[in-house]
Design a protein around this nucleic acid. Structure first.
Lengths: 152, 152
DNA sequence: TCCGTTCGGTTTCAACTTGAAACCATTGCG
DNA sequence: CGCAATGGTTTCAAGTTGAAACCGAACGGA
């Protein structure tokens, strides 16, 4: 090769996002951002990632419009990283990944955490996929269609 | 470093799944598996990935119980790769990722595809996150709690 | 004022991963 | 028997990752 292949121009809209968040750290940074982290040092401490890598990842996330830097909250010369609208759109990906993780990656008897509704403190419902008419769809009961096909 | 860091033993249940599917190709393989692909050659042709990489990824997915090999469908000496229950659980991750991709990565006027219900052929609904009591939750209206907290 | 510390990175360099291409073993087929 | 297709593995150069060192600017004290 020569360069890690990019999915940037792939037709598939699952492939393209992987360019932005398809590495080992980016999603974890976004997760931490959802948890309210904003500073370089916070991410670094939370993730334990090398600073050069974190630096590169943050830059990539900013370049993809998932995070943006805001000038300075406490008047310091530094900036903070906050989620954009696009970045907040990753919420559903994180929920899906987490529910999958809860189901298949939690050791027996392990005191794992799960997502709860801020207001009630109770666990959220499982994600479900619905047809337009409200029928619940199981994995595999969907396919891809292009604009033309579904328009007719 | 020395070795790419593993999130295998991370506490966070978002981190651990990334060990299984957190690279550039694995999710695309799973996507293709949902589309009915089963053979090495099918994946290779579809993804255009180098054969050694595909081989390594398939092995990793099998090791993580996401795919399993089934002996031989047509009596040939080769095997096929099919999704396990755990692998099918990734459906929601793929849907989330795809909807995010549809929203933020489709070029203007681009003839992109989207997911439709097999039965009606109409696009599926957007994913939504609900509280236990049925309230719709927006990104950021959740937090993590451990078992102890939510039990009381 | 000068020293030490924290924050937010960049640089350096060795180890590891990736990818293209070549190679190899089976099976299928004429 | 010969030859192509399938499904990989091996080899090797180039690229990526990570630990640690380094750096500069902004405080904070003594």
């Amino acid at each position: 090769m020569v360069k890690r292949t990019s999915h940037q121009s792939a037709d598939c809209l699952i492939a393209r996002p992987l360019d932005a968040i398809g590495d080992w750290w980016s999603l974890l940074i976004v997760r931490d951002a959802f948890d309210g982290m904003r500073r370089f040092g916070e991410f670094q401490k939370s993730l334990g990632v090398a600073k050069n890598i974190l630096s590169a990842r943050l830059r990539n996330l900013v370049a993809h419009g998932i995070l943006e830097t805001v000038p300075a909250p406490d008047g310091s010369a530094h900036h903070e990283y906050v989620l954009t609208e696009k970045g907040r759109g990753l919420f559903y990906v994180l929920v899906a990944l987490r529910q999958w993780g809860e189901t298949y990656f939690s050791g027996p008897g392990e005191p794992y955490t799960f997502m709860v509704d801020n207001e009630s403190g109770k666990p959220i419902r499982r994600l479900e996929v619905y047809a337009e008419d409200g029928r619940l769809l199981a994995p595999g009961e969907t396919r891809l269609a292009d604009f033309r096909q579904q328009a007719e």
